[in-house]
Design a protein around this nucleic acid. Structure first.
Length: 820
RNA sequence: GGCGCGGUGGCGGAAUUGGCAGACGCGCUAGGUUUAGGACCUAGUUCUCGUAUGAGAGUGAGAGUUCGAGUCUCUCCCGCGCCACCA
């Protein structure tokens, strides 16, 4: 028989809400902060992927509550952003209206799934009472020099008509609209995330996060250790400083390459040939992305020569656009014998190639030599080697990270200790020093768009740039604007908005008209939940102390180097400025795997393969939806939506429903009790490990066992309902009440499996490693007795006939007879 | 090219420390119940041979360690994700 899920689910959702049982308690018990990444409230409503992550948070919240934890599980809206603004451009409907409607829909949809949120803490990033504090954070960063303006080549998306952060450009395309991103030189606001590069990298080690996310962040931060070396320039007083990760190959440097933007070229432009000047002009016209796309490296000889600091030989200085001004010093030494890219470049332009070999006369590189001036090779413990021109191959080739790619007769001398020694000696010789570089760039946060928090800054002709005063926050978004993007912020339209008086001199001033990247909003929302209604502080200290950090954070891996990196940075910066008491926001992170459509593709409106959660809830019920999404496969893996498999879950819940008719005052079969108790044990362990799929299969097995029985005791069934409750809260609660229990299952303590110690064990019997049978016998029998019993098993005896087997016995588990 | 993750029946997936491979669910097959339907009940379902008890093969390929490998080691192939001229 099938139960009526609609009535039951609505009934309990209403009672939970009326009784406010999921309000965060204010008690002294140990806390648990369960958080899912808050959604962008899209006009299309909830995606089928949202409930997957949120159900995981809910299972943990319910589980932790019944283990005596004080649980905080809030929900809110990442409600600033482009889709609402684009909709406004098309229809003229104000984003605030669209957003409110979408939020109301989302809220109702989430409530229909039975997620135990504390809705009294709801926040919305586009609400002035929220973005007031986003602006407040910006001002604090500005005061500390962590928010600054600079003119730089930045990523411009022609589709979205705004600049983008590096993290928002994927393979040269806009992460949001897939337009080809171009480069523009603009004065923009940046946040100095690079100040925290080292801490962001080191902090990863202590986080309980998936390795893949840690690896992506590590990769993105991109730390390289090496040295900077100064090269004097012939007929010039300028020096050129290069960065290298392979200072041990300094002997092999046969030319320098500098970036077309390098200041050396500006200083000496009068002496440069027209060919060089043309090349610089051409490079300027190309974006960094176009330059990267070029298959072959190009370059021009500047005519200048550098002095090699070890050999005093003159080596040419080239300019090439594959050397980027934004990384390192914008200049490199080229060692074609030991670097693949330099090798290609040297081949193309017929530049000299010198390989480096270990000095056969100076194996002990650490010992100081008095004759250093004569034997500079002591510095590196290496000398110039002869390069074998005949086979046209260098003895060894390295890529940028010192990884050997073509091992010849020469071995890598680039060990950790070698590098340390080389660095020390270079420093002592006064030709360079140890240097660390990061790939990470500062976070560009200006956006030329309307639907975001205004940057709270005022420009005065006399007094310059000033932050808005705290008492004047929030700087509210004006309504009298045309949303149509022009490449300049729509806020520019609003006279009332941007014409202001200078706070210092009272003179003519204007407001900043750009808004902040919406990723700034989401970098701190987990803090606001702790003290949602506080009007005088971002968050009260006692709440921070009590609830931070987030104990469990569930969300998609696509935020690896976006939100998850920004939130870590803002947390660290805020801790330094106002003292949060934590350096990391999210203690444990779990990635929710993507749900793909039935056709295996990503779900999208344009493909027409989107599944609507409302329809699933209506047809199968919220409990079925929740459980199906948990049952589909390993939580972190991507899975394919299969409506037929959903039916299987519903069948199981129907069977559980029908089990309740078998309840009697009855002594259960110990075998049945054992199965239920084992299930309790397994479900508990598997929740802890995020293995919800196996939790559910274990509960299905127990249901199958219970179904074989003609009668079940109410006590045993109640234990089963309790472990079912986090997964199917409505059904479990309804059956709980129907089978003579009172109150909310949420208030019932989590059961501890009651398993009596086994007196018998089943031993697997193998002959020559092949399974041949098994035998059940008393625990702790001596090996000789086990052997005797095992040999007597019919199917085993057959294979042992006429042999004198040697036995390997794993006590209580397995016995293996070897006949050969 | 680098980094990370993965490859098990018709399908989604189990097998947590090396010890009965394929749990659980879908699908499929046969039978039952029903006017009918299936989100009902029963039995079966890795492949090959066999009516069957059973035997042999089998976890991307190949080697190795081990009494014993889906699991550990090495080499390779394939798929997915991220980064990619970062010196």
């Amino acid at each position: 028989m099938s139960y009526n899920h609609q009535d039951i689910e609505k009934k309990w959702q209403k009672r939970w809400e009326d009784d406010q049982i999921y309000r965060t308690p204010d008690a002294i018990e140990e806390k648990f902060y369960s958080l899912g990444m808050f959604p962008y409230p899209s006009g299309d409503g909830l995606h089928i992927g949202h409930p997957k992550g949120y159900t995981a948070n809910d299972i943990w919240a319910r589980y932790k509550r019944s283990r005596g934890f004080q649980v905080l599980m809030p929900m809110g809206w990442d409600s600033f952003g482009l889709p609402a603004e684009n909709y406004a451009i098309k229809t003229g409907v104000h984003p605030a209206q669209t957003t409110k409607k979408a939020i109301d829909n989302f809220r109702q949809q989430l409530k229909s799934i039975g997620l135990s949120y504390d809705w009294s803490r709801e926040i919305s990033t586009s609400d002035p009472s929220y973005y007031k504090w986003t602006q407040w954070i910006f001002l604090r960063l500005f005061e500390k020099g962590l928010a600054y303006q600079k003119e730089a080549p930045v990523n411009w998306c022609p589709g979205c008509q705004t600049v983008l952060a590096n993290e928002q450009v994927k393979e040269g395309l806009c992460d949001r609209c897939s337009s080809k991103v171009v480069q523009k030189n603009l004065k923009q606001w940046f946040l100095k995330i690079t100040d925290y590069a080292e801490e962001l990298l080191e902090g990863l080690d202590d986080l309980d996060w998936p390795d893949s996310i840690k690896a992506m962040q590590k990769n993105w931060i991109g730390k390289s250790s090496g040295a900077s070396v100064n090269f004097d320039v012939n007929e010039s007083t300028s020096k050129i400083e290069i960065f290298t990760t392979r200072p041990d190959t300094l002997f092999g440097a046969t030319y320098l390459v500098i970036s077309p933007e390098h200041p050396f070229l500006k200083i000496h432009s009068a002496k440069l040939s027209s060919e060089v000047l043309d090349y610089i002009e051409q490079a300027k016209a190309k974006s960094e992305l176009d330059r990267q796309a070029a298959k072959e490296k190009t370059g021009v000889d500047t005519g200048f020569e550098a002095i090699h600091p070890l050999t005093n030989k003159k080596i040419p200085i080239w300019v090439a656009d594959y050397v980027l001004m934004g990384y390192g010093t914008g200049a490199i030494m080229a060692v074609p014998a030991h670097d693949e890219r330099d090798w290609d470049f040297a081949q193309k332009y017929k530049l000299p190639i010198i390989s480096v070999i270990e000095d056969p006369n100076d194996s002990d590189v650490i010992s100081e030599s008095d004759s250093e001036s004569e034997n500079k090779n002591v510095i590196l413990g290496a000398v110039e080697g002869s390069y074998n021109q005949e086979n046209n191959k260098p003895p060894a080739l390295y890529t940028g990270h010192g990884r050997l790619i073509n091992s010849g007769s020469w071995n890598n001398l680039h060990s950790e200790t070698d590098l340390k020694t080389v660095l020390l000696n270079i420093t002592n010789a006064g030709i360079g020093k140890e240097e660390v570089n990061y790939r990470l760039r500062d976070w560009l946060v200006s956006r030329q768009r309307y639907w975001g928090p205004p940057i709270p800054v005022i420009y005065c002709e006399k007094c310059g740039v000033r932050g808005v005063e705290d008492k004047d926050l929030p700087v509210q978004l004006p309504d009298d604007v045309d949303f149509k993007p022009t490449g300049e912020s729509p806020l520019n339209d609003s006279e009332t908005f941007h014409n202001v008086k200078c706070l210092a001199c009272g003179g003519v001033a204007r407001r900043e008209v750009d808004t902040l990247d919406t990723f700034v909003d989401s970098s701190w929302y987990f803090i606001r939940y702790l003290d949602t209604n506080n009007e005088s502080e971002i968050c009260g200290a006692k709440h921070l102390k009590k609830w931070m950090p987030v104990d469990l954070y569930v969300g998609g891996a696509e935020h690896a180097v976006l939100h998850l990196l920004y939130a870590r940075f803002i947390t660290k910066a805020l801790d330094d400025i106002v003292g949060l008491g934590v350096r990391e926001p999210f203690r444990k992170l779990v990635n929710v795997g993507l749900i793909r459509a039935e056709d295996g593709q990503k779900m999208s409106k344009s493909r027409g393969n989107v599944v609507n959660p409302d329809e699933i809830v209506a047809e199968f019920g919220a409990d079925s939806l929740r459980i199906y999404e948990m049952f589909m496969g390993p939580f972190e893996e991507s899975v394919q939506w299969d409506p037929k498999a959903l039916v299987g879950v519903r069948r199981w819940l129907d069977r559980v429903w029908n089990l309740s008719t078998k309840l009697k005052d009855f002594e259960d079969d110990p075998q049945v009790v054992k199965v239920v108790e084992q299930t309790i044990e397994k479900v508990t362990a598997d929740i802890e490990n995020f293995r919800f799929n196996t939790c559910i299969s274990a509960m299905m097995i127990a249901a199958n066992k219970l179904q074989e029985q003609t009668s079940i005791s109410a006590e045993l069934f109640a234990r089963y309902l309790k472990i079912l409750a986090p997964f199917a809260p409505h059904l479990a609660q309804e059956l709980w009440e129907r089978t003579g229990n009172i109150g909310y299952l949420d208030d019932v303590e989590w059961p501890v499996a009651e398993l009596s110690e086994e007196t018998e064990v089943t031993v697997i019997i193998q002959v020559d490693g092949k399974f041949r049978g098994k035998v059940t016998l008393l625990k702790d029998l001596e090996q000789s007795l086990v052997e005797e019993r095992a040999k007597a098993v019919e199917n085993v005896a057959k294979f042992l006939e006429g042999t004198a087997p040697k036995a390997i016995y794993v006590p209580g588990k397995l016995i293996n007879f070897l006949t050969k």
